[in-house]
Amino acid sequence: MRREPLVRSRRAMLAASFLGLLMLVAILAPLLASESSPLVPFAPDRVDLEARLLPPSTSHWFGTDELGRDLFSRTVHGARVSLAVGLSVALLALGIGAILGALAGYAGGAFDWTVSRAIELALSFPFFFLALGVAALFEPSFASVVATLVAVSWTSDAKVVRGEIRRLRTGDIDVAARAAGASRLRILFRHLLPAAMGPAVASAAFGVASAIAAESALSFLGLGVQPPQASWGSILASADDYIQRAWWIAFFPGLAVFFTVLACTFLGEAARDALDPSSEAHEPV
C-alpha cells in the first residue's frame, strides 16, 4: 500500500529536471546558438557549403548537414518548435476533449451517441494514417501540424472525461449542487468537470510525449514543419537521404526526441500513480 508522492519519485524528479533544462535551452536558443554567441557561433540556418556533412567535432558538436548547417544549433532551435507543438497539442486536445466529453457524458442522447462513435472510430483507426490524411488538407506548417494532431488526439481525453462525468453525474456533488438551485450547465462546468479532470490531467504528459513523437514523424515524411525552419523531425527528413554517409544527422535530433518522450512518459507515470488510486493494482503484490 506504499504510495510514493510525486515529489519523492526519483525517476519523476530526474525527468522533470531534464524537461526543465530543455525548456530553458529552448527559450535561450537565440542566445546560445547564433552568429554572435561565444558558445556556438552558428545560426541554425546559416549555409556553409565548405563545411558540408562534417562529422561531430569540437567546432561542430553534432556535425553538419548536407548544406553545411550546424546541427547542434539546429537541434537547439528545433527544441523550440518541438516543445511548442507538444505543449500546445496536449493543452488544446485536453481542453476540447474535456468540453466535448463532459457535454456528451452529461447530456446523453444523440449528442453522446455521435461523440462516442467519433471517439470509438478515432481510437480504432490507425492514428498515423488519420494524421497523414488530415495533414494532406493543409499546406504544411507549424499551425497545420498542431491542428492535425489536435484533430486526431482530443478523443482519448474526451473518452476519459466522459467516463468520469457519467460516474459523477448521479453522485453527491450533483445532488448537492441541484439542491442549491444550480443550473445544469453550471453544475456540469463548475462542479462536475473539475472533479472529473484528474485522470485526464494526469495523462497530459503522455499527450505531450505522443504529440512530440508524431510531429517528428510527420516532419520526417515532409508533411510537417517545413525547411528551412528547424524542428527535430525536419532535421531528420534529410537524414534519410544521407544515412549511408552521415549517421550524425539522424542520431542527435532522434536522441532528443527519445529523451524528451521518455521524460514525459516517466512524469506521466508518476502523476498517474500519485493521482489515481486504482493504479496500485499494478504494484507488485
Binding site: I243, A250, F258, V261, T265
Partner: peptide, 18 residues
C-alpha cells in the same frame, strides 16, 4: 520496456540500418 516504448520508430529504424 518504458525506454524501448519511447524510442521514435524512425530513429530505431535508422539506428538499426546504421
Amino acid at each position: 520496456a518504458t525506454a524501448i516504448y519511447s524510442i521514435p520508430t524512425f530513429w530505431l529504424a535508422l539506428l538499426l540500418l546504421q
